[in-house]
Design a protein around this nucleic acid. Structure first.
Lengths: 214, 214
DNA sequence: ATTAGTTCTAGTCAATCTGACTATAACTAC
DNA sequence: GTAGTTATAGTCAGATTGACTAGAACTAAT
């Protein structure tokens, strides 16, 4: 389950997109589904998630976290399947390089049709978690490049939370977080006062998967 | 992974306890470990967790939530094991009924020796999650009975967070949450002014496991 | 060169929330 | 009665938040 920001076709503002793969066999042949695959005997869970991500879309995530283990009895009509789902954030530069093809395509996270298996429910839950983490933790920066303006951070929040935020108040809050570092660079090229560039110096969260990285 | 409140031997104040089972075969024979067991083909993940809980300790949880899927390559020295761990809260009345025996015993959560497998790390993570959920969500009430005083709620927080809280300020905050309902009952029997009893009217969280219960 | 249009950025102010603290109420034990 | 204990309400200063104002710094059009 991969999230990335891409400009909306209409407004040009960044919105949330996810890549899906088309089922080429039964069950649910022809429907779109989350990328995934089997867990090999010799790889850890996050390794397997990264490999699957790379194999199907060519993407390398800037953030990877376990979402949930889904094990309902009737998730697949043919057999009992337990899926340990991970979710990833990729930066826009990465997302632009992603392989697209007849059977791999990006979709807006808020405009999905009917997907294979219980994947609609999985995405709903992932979106809920993303919004939650965004409200507390410092996760939004993994959807941006190394340098960014405060307005870009605000656009990320607006895209994910789906509501507008007061620019001045948002600045004040972000600037108060110690993990945000001011640089001496400014972003030129806009038709207005050039905004200052910042960078994120924090570390990802502390899951069991990556607890030992202090 | 089960949490319950039991009075400390020394101070008599409630503290966090968890039941462990003794390994009766290799690997780690003789060491204490978290209760658990295999996932059968015909039961969902939360069902399997409840059943294991009941089989080993006789307990029925008042709260059950998925903790994490642990899948490191070397968790067990003999084979590759993926454990989908659930954590549960049980009320004190339940906990008092729990089966204890030579091979099942309660331990204080903050005073554990070396356990089998990676179970020390799992418990650390569960404690971290419990503290986190406590700070935000309304989870503490599942460690109490149906009726409780505000001082009892405070004791739960103090036990889990391991620090003292100002009684007056704590009251103010708890009373402000809409899920707490005042009753007309008072708890008699103390050697001081009898405190009013309250009840919790909220629902558990919204995991994928129990999302459809509005 | 001037002006209009845009966003960036700093700041004010009232409302709300938080933590430290004081004071009274209501019970039991002596 | 009186001392001891916890329950409960309330006050007050400091921090945080949301709505808003205003000047700064750039581009584009005149």
């Amino acid at each position: 389950m991969i999230f990335a920001l891409r400009p909306s076709e209409r407004s040009g503002r960044p919105t949330l997109w996810i890549p899906l793969v088309r089922r080429i066999r039964e069950p649910f042949k022809g429907l779109w589904a989350l990328p995934g695959g089997p867990l090999s005997h010799s790889e850890s869970l996050p390794d397997a998630a990264s490999r699957n991500l790379r194999d199907t879309t060519g993407l390398a995530p800037s953030y990877l976290e376990q979402l949930y283990a889904f094990g309902g009895l009737h998730r697949s009509p043919t057999q009992r399947v337990v899926s340990i789902v991970y979710w990833a954030l990729v930066q826009p530069t990465e997302a632009a390089l992603a392989d697209e093809s007849e059977n791999v395509r990006w979709f807006r996270a808020d405009r999905l049709g009917e997907l294979a298996f219980d994947h609609n429910a999985i995405i709903d839950y992932a979106l809920w978690r993303l919004r939650n983490k965004m409200a507390y933790g410092s996760i939004a920066y993994h959807l941006l490049g190394e340098y960014f303006t405060l307005a870009q951070v605000r656009e990320v929040y607006e895209a994910v939370l789906d509501r507008e935020l007061d620019p001045a108040n948002f600045r004040r809050q972000v600037k108060a977080t110690p993990e945000i570092e001011e640089t001496d660079q400014y972003l030129q090229g806009g038709k207005h006062r050039p905004p200052r560039l910042y960078r994120f110096t924090g570390r990802p969260g502390l899951d069991p998967d990556n607890r030992s990285t202090p």
